[in-house]
């Protein structure tokens, strides 16, 4: 399996092809959002909504051995695309890997400029919540 950094480098490469054209970048992000796997309806509940996002984002996890699978959804296509990028990088990793991960692709693809400051705060909230899950799993595994 490729490392977290390998996947991030892949993403950086993909976005560099789009260049500075904001419009096509946004279309691409939305397209990625469309590829997110179906979110389980029974988990579309208030407790799974990430606080701090302007749009609604639901996040839940599945434990697969020592690894964490993330499942997420949003009511906006751009946000769905953003979270699909995070899932691509972090899902299927061990809690230790997730906690250690330096998500440098976000700055390198210039995400702040693409999505603006409000959505950047939302993106930080998503990352924080994903890491909190990892922390909880790690604590559980260490018991």
């Amino acid at each position: 399996m490729s490392s977290i950094q390998d996947i991030q480098d892949e993403i950086i490469e993909e976005f560099s092809i789009l260049g500075d054209d904001k419009e096509s970048t946004i279309y691409y992000i939305m397209e990625l959002g469309g590829q997110l796997p179906q979110f389980p309806e029974e988990e579309r509940v208030e407790e799974n909504i990430i606080k701090g996002c302007q749009s609604k984002v639901w996040l839940t996890t599945r434990e697969e051995g020592e690894r964490i699978q993330y499942l997420a959804d949003s009511n906006t296509d751009i946000t769905k695309g953003l979270i699909s990028l995070l899932i691509r990088v972090l899902s299927g990793r061990t809690p230790q890997e997730i906690l250690k991960a330096d998500l440098n692709f976000i700055d390198k693809i210039g995400m702040g400029n693409i999505i603006g400051s409000q959505r950047s705060n939302g993106l930080s909230a998503m990352i924080k919540q994903m890491k909190l899950y990892a922390l909880a799993y790690q604590a559980k595994q260490n018991v």
């Binding site: 904001k22 419009e23 946004i26 939305m30 302007q54 749009s55 009511n75 906006t76 296509d77 751009i78 946000t79 999505i115 603006g116 959505r119």
Partner: peptide, 21 residues
């Protein structure tokens, strides 16, 4: 079928400033 935020961001990519929310 679209969220107002997404429409706003895409309009902004075209240089058009509107408010959403």
């Amino acid at each position: 079928g679209m969220h107002p935020f997404d429409v706003g961001v895409m309009l902004d990519a075209n240089g058009i400033a509107v408010r959403t929310g």
